[in-house]
Nucleic acid binder design. Sequence first.
DNA 1: GCGACAG
DNA 2: ATCTTGTCGC
Length: 225
Amino acid sequence: MEVRDLHEWPATAEEAEKIQDRLRPLLDLAGPGPAAPRTVAGLDVSYADGSDRLVAAAVVLDAATLDTVEESVVAGTATFPYVPGLFAFRELPTLIEALRGLTVTPDVLVCDGYGLAHPRRFGLACHLGVLTDLPTFGVAKTGFVGTYAPPGEDRGDASPLTDAGEVVGRVLRTRDGVKPVFVSAGHRIDLDTACRLTLGLCPGYRLPETTRRADHLSRQALRHT
DNA sequence: GCGACAG
DNA sequence: ATCTTGTCGC
């Protein structure tokens, strides 16, 4: 599939922040986004111990059956350090190549991390949304920005994630009695649709099948490399 | 000033 | 992210 080149890769945190500020206006937050997408892609990256080696994976699933439609894996190098708030610059280069390796264009992209729930409202899911112009959202495993009240214990229970007075995401329980996930919109989708899709992708585990399969694929490829 | 801090 | 064994529970 196609992924645009909208900027050079930054060498410093200052440059990276400027890029985020420059791209943020390109976000489409109108929604509602695809209520019943045919395909959904999951993205994830695995890292090697001591080296800078990493592997990015993109897995496309049939949204209705959750069958795997296509997989793409690419080995790369970490060229940017992990900095909270600039996390996208570490994984994006290789993730983009993995997406370009797909012959099909997914209807939605599910990212491992945050979208709008970000200090400058431009997390990984937003960044990927602008570069692909596809609907995107993020599902994170741990907290980052914002405060929230613990959601109810049942699958589907949720509570708003608030930061600086605005709702930037939702803390969603995907399994009864299991630690909730953090869902936030990225591009061309609203929070309700993102949460609805997330639940559909979580029939048996806390994390979406998209994320789980991309994780397994990238991890396995890292060994074989 | 002191933590906290997506992966 | 990654380093790591057993163990409690459905």
